[in-house]
C-alpha cells in the first residue's frame, strides 16, 4: 500500500473510533497522520508482540488529545485488536479520550495534561544513556502545548543532558482550542526558538512533501550531544477539506453518521 493509501486508511480508522463514542478530537488526530505513519512504517523499532521489549524505540504522544491517531496506528500494527475500538471512551474500554499507559499496549506514557511528555521522554532518553542502550526516544508535542512553561524547562534539560537520542516532533497544525496559534499565543519564530535551546532543528511540510520526513530519518546521523527538533507543518483537520482549519470541530461531540460519512467522502 502506498503512503497516501496508508494515511487514508488510518484516517478511516479514526472516523471508525469516533463513530463508537460520537466524540473525539478528529482534527487534532488528522494532523498527526502523516507523521505517525512515517514513524511507525519506516522509522521506529518495535515488536508489537512484545511491547515492553527493552530495546524498542519509545514514542510518547504528548498531545494526548490526538490519541485517536495513535490508537489507529497501534491497532494497525497489531499492538491490540481493532475490537477495542468499540470501547472507545466507554466504561470498560481500554481506549480513552486521552491515552493511559497501563491499559494500552504500545502506549508509553499517560498524557492529556499538556506539557508533560517531553520531560518523561527526557527521563527515558537519559535511561538509555545511563544503561548504554541504543534505543531512541520520540515525543510528539502539539503547537498549543508549547505555550506550557514546562516544555521550555524540558528543552533546557534535553540540551543540558546532551540527549542526542531524543527526537522532539511538533505537530504545528497552526490552531489551538480558541483560535489560531498566532492569535492566541504566537510561537514564531518557532524554529529559531528550538535552535536557540540547542536543538538540531528541521522543518517539514507534511501536507505537500511528507516523504521528506522519511528521507530525513534514512540519512540521519545524530550530532553528538545534540537533541533533534522536527517541526511538522500540518493543518488541523488535515486530509478532509471541511475540517481543515475549522475550529468548530475541536470540541465537537454528538458526531452523527452523516458527519462521518461526509468526512469519509472527502478523504
Amino acid at each position: 500500500m502506498d503512503f497516501k493509501s496508508r494515511c487514508k486508511k488510518i484516517r478511516e480508522e479514526i472516523l471508525e473510533l469516533a463513530r463508537h463514542s460520537r466524540r473525539g478530537h478528529i482534527p487534532s488526530a488528522f494532523s498527526l497522520v502523516e507523521t505517525l505513519v512515517t514513524l511507525y512504517d519506516d522509522v521506529l523499532k518495535f515488536d508489537a508482540k512484545n511491547p515492553d521489549w527493552k530495546l524498542r524505540d519509545r514514542l510518547i504522544l504528548s498531545k494526548g488529545h490526538g490519541c485517536m491517531a495513535l490508537y489507529s496506528i497501534l491497532a494497525d500494527k497489531n499492538f491490540f485488536s481493532r475490537e477495542h475500538f468499540a470501547g472507545f471512551c466507554q466504561l470498560d474500554g481500554i481506549l480513552g479520550g486521552h491515552p493511559t499507559r497501563e491499559k494500552i499496549p504500545g502506549c508509553e506514557a499517560s498524557t492529556g495534561s499538556l506539557g508533560h511528555g517531553l520531560s518523561i521522554a527526557i527521563g527515558m532518553a537519559l535511561n538509555a544513556k545511563i544503561e548504554e542502550l541504543n534505543y531512541r526516544t520520540f515525543v510528539i508535542l502539539g503547537d498549543g502545548e508549547c505555550n506550557e512553561g514546562s516544555i521550555w524547562e524540558a528543552a533546557l534539560s534535553a540540551s543540558h543532558n546532551r540527549l542526542d537520542n531524543l527526537y522532539v516532533l511538533i505537530d504545528y497544525n497552526k490552531y489551538q482550542s480558541y483560535g489560531s496559534t498566532n492569535e492566541v499565543c504566537d510561537l514564531e519564530p518557532f524554529a529559531d526558538k528550538w535552535r536557540a535551546f540547542g536543538f538540531d532543528t528541521h522543518e517539514f511540510d507534511m501536507r505537500k512533501k511528507p516523504e521528506e520526513l522519511k528521507s530525513f530519518f534514512e540519512d540521519h546521523r545524530p550530532i553528538s550531544g545534540t537533541p533533534v527538533a522536527i517541526i511538522c507543518h500540518t493543518i488541523k483537520g488535515q486530509g478532509a477539506a471541511s475540517l481543515e482549519g475549522n475550529l468548530s470541530w475541536h470540541h465537537r461531540s454528538k458526531i452523527s453518521d452523516e458527519d462521518l460519512s461526509s468526512i469519509k467522502d472527502e478523504l
Binding site: 508509553e108 520531560s119 518523561i120 527521563g123 535511561n127 512553561g149 514546562s150 524547562e153
Partner: peptide, 25 residues
C-alpha cells in the same frame, strides 16, 4: 551515572524522574 544536578525546574524534574522510574529506576 546515578547522580544528576538539574536546574530550577521542578515540573521538568518530576516528569523526568517519572520517565526514569518507568524504565525501572
Amino acid at each position: 551515572k546515578q547522580y544528576f544536578m538539574e536546574g530550577i525546574s521542578e515540573a521538568n524534574l518530576i516528569g523526568m524522574a517519572a520517565g526514569l522510574a518507568m524504565e525501572g529506576k
